[in-house]
Design a protein around this nucleic acid. Structure first.
Lengths: 177, 177, 177, 177
DNA sequence: AATGAATGAGAGTTCATTCAT
DNA sequence: AATGAATGAACTCTCATTCAT
């Protein structure tokens, strides 16, 4: 499954071949089918894995004071260190337009993501860390959108993604002075 | 080529079949190959078309006063009316990680896009429409990132994309009072 | 299709391989699929061919006086000269127990066959060639059954099939004196 | 082995899968191979079982007076109550054209069958139950042929098979008045 | 400029069989 | 005696591409 994950990251769904996956692991094609009866089942497993991987890192951590900044930077760091994750997530996002099962899971995940960020914003506002009157709902949408975008290859360039996120921090007023 | 464009939007590169393209147009496969010697050539043509389509709409227009707001809304409108364009653009963005030719063109395009937005910001700042001291470079990056994200299916939901962009307008101070 | 017919005769449905069929004709597998999109379609064509082949020979011919004898001997001759036909017919008969489409066609064909033989018997009876009071319906069933059986390999041995049919002629009273 | 027998009856050799057989019994594939090293060995066992099953019922029984009629009706009853037996027998008959081992056993079995029926006829003739001068050899062939045919699915229809056999009884003069 | 026919390479999947335990 | 895991070989079907016309 990890091999499939890597293959998707590298070549997209377009270039995903069960034989290559089996080869990468060093097992026979039939063995792969023993564990994943169909290609679709394999993709399903990759989908779940990606979701898990993402959700785990999503959990805000660190001192409550700087949680928001930590969160933005943490996500950025994750995407830079594991560009495959971003690639696969975007592939899945595109796939969600065509495949009902994928769509369901992706939408659920985006919902949770949005909710988590919104929670962060609410708490920070309550603690006076953020400007009062901030619309947590739409701001969360903006943050999630930006984070989603920087996972895309063309945005993945260090300068681009970093600039966008830094500006976001500045506007939120959470950038380190 | 338009048929190929539609197919990519609908099924992704993963599901692009030259035969389907030929069928949609009502010509023989061999005829398609007469005009586009290879599948790659066809994709190349789609790439150029998508770029053109996007560049054309990118051009800021309307009264200089509200150009920035118009621009954001115009892009959003385009993506909502022609979701295929967003889908294809994202497919191409992903592909740019694997294909050198695509990457070259996509990066060039993103560069131009960024530059155009930056120009808009600069002019607006000069005219006193935007807060002084605004970092045009990184703000442009943030805007491009957000616009890119709202082209993705899960973000394409009316509420999501609109919220993110409205928040962007608010922060820029260009939202209609 | 003829190649498929021969393959079925030789190896049964059990041993029917599209590749072998293509090879026998000397074309590529893909070419075979160009004409018969699926294996099932190919089998369908074979089914129709076998029916045609059989129906054609079924038609009673020759002087009305000896039609019945001619008919029995003609069928026997056909099965001896083209044992493949018998083999394929029996394969299809077995398949008709599992495949609805095959069943429909086979039952129709058996119906026609029975009807044709019954017609022969009626005419012969009317002309006084056969014993009066003969039950044409069940006699036709017996004839069809016997002819069906002699198409089976173990019955196909010259002595067996011939004996059975000769006895049939004798009972009907149509054997050459 | 009984599971294999049922599978062959239901799906033919064409659809016989060792895995399905193992599943039906509720054991692992490897366990099946422990008892039947190869698929061919399993088929061999089924072959023997079918022969036994048939031979057993073949044995003429009942009062000598009506043995022949009893025999015909008994066989018919067997085939109607256990259609699987007829299906498997026919599958084997077809297979005997391709497989030497099967052929040997089938021919032997048909030989015994023929001989048994002939014995019946001879005895009946001697007892004056049948018309004198009857050619026992070819009549036996006709009987075996008819019985073989009514095992085939299309002939298996109640009306067909019954009609053929009733006519046979009538001709033999053994039908109940 | 257009097409029906053909093809090589490869795709996902299946299956009888074997291996280690 | 039994099993989960593994495999080679083969299967049907697909697809971008080419050829002859």
């Amino acid at each position: 499954m990890l091999a499939a994950f890597r293959q998707i990251a590298e070549r997209g769904f377009e270039g995903l071949r069960t034989r290559d996956v089996a080869n990468e692991v060093g097992v026979n094609i039939a063995t792969l089918h023993y564990y994943f009866p169909t290609k679709e089942a394999l993709i399903g497993a990759v989908l779940e894995h990606a979701m898990d991987r993402f959700r785990t890192t999503l959990e805000p951590h660190g001192s409550p004071d700087s949680q928001l900044r930590n969160y933005l930077r943490g996500t950025r760091k994750l995407l830079r260190e594991e560009p495959e994750l971003g690639a696969v997530m975007t592939e899945l996002a595109l796939r969600s337009a065509r495949d009902a099962e994928t769509r369901k899971i992706m939408e659920e995940m985006y919902g949770q993501w949005h909710k988590a960020v919104r929670g962060l914003l609410k708490r920070a506002t309550r603690q006076g860390k953020l400007r009062a009157g901030l619309d947590t709902e739409s701001t969360a949408a903006l943050i999630v959108a930006t984070l989603t975008a920087v996972a895309l290859p063309p945005m993945g360039n260090v300068s681009w993604g970093d600039q966008a996120l830094r500006e976001l921090e500045r506007w939120l007023g959470v950038s380190k002075r």
